[in-house]
Design a protein around this nucleic acid. Structure first.
Lengths: 115, 115
DNA sequence: TCAATATATGAATAACTGTTCATATATTAA
DNA sequence: TTAATATATGAACAGTTATTCATATATTGA
């Protein structure tokens, strides 16, 4: 295997190789996307767009069991996509920041899906 | 399990349930994120930020075998994240559109990782 | 048409991931 | 402190996914 396109994209290939982020950074970004790449977890994000929710209400909004949702929330939190705070007996979850909202909206625009 | 927060986020829960996209749409969005949630595939996207590349140059930029990269490209193309065109013996790949670029950049900003 | 180059793909195995079940921890009220 | 409520978590199984290997298809030049 070799490629004879010496001019056009050989330059792009060179730049691409030189500017590739470090493996550790690529993995961090990939892990973030992975956390929102499962329908069950993505539904949680869609639910949290409407404001802070406790686990009970998340379960109500997205369906599934409490245990499954709790596992899903743990992954989302580990990925830095949602944050949480305690209020009495409840833990309230919300989207981590505006970047998360923006990524969700871009994806939906891209796929022509209204939210 | 039940929740007694009647005022504050009970409203958000109601809105969340009412505005949840259809399962089919959630799955489509999730599938897109899944396609870019593996380091090997994400590296391909980072490489393509610098311009159109043939498979040979992609392999050069991201490493791995030709076969693995080819399988990865197929998934990315099926997800609508990259597009391709033939030029003689080569197939040139590029990012599908500006949404993809924007999502990549947002994710990197969010994670404070320079690209 | 034949050989060489470039890319794609089916099948199989290995690795990963999600859910469930049972149980644990934390908070509040009595 | 005890009971009730809310949330979290470990282990195990089932389902999914990625890579490899071998091979197939497509294009070009001789």
């Amino acid at each position: 295997m070799k490629c004879d396109h010496e001019t056009e994209h050989a330059l792009a290939a060179k730049r691409a190789a030189e500017n590739m982020p470090k493996a550790e950074e690529v993995e961090r970004v990939a892990a973030s996307f992975k956390s929102i790449s499962e329908p069950a977890r993505l539904k949680i994000l869609f639910a949290l767009r409407h404001g802070e929710l406790c686990v009970y209400h998340i379960v109500e909004a997205v369906g599934g069991t409490q245990s499954a949702v709790s596992h899903q929330l743990r992954l989302l939190r580990a990925a830095g996509v949602v944050k949480s705070r305690r209020e009495g007996q409840n833990i309230l979850y919300s989207l981590a920041d505006e970047h998360v909202v923006a990524v969700l909206e871009l994806a939906c625009t891209h796929l022509k899906c209204k939210i």
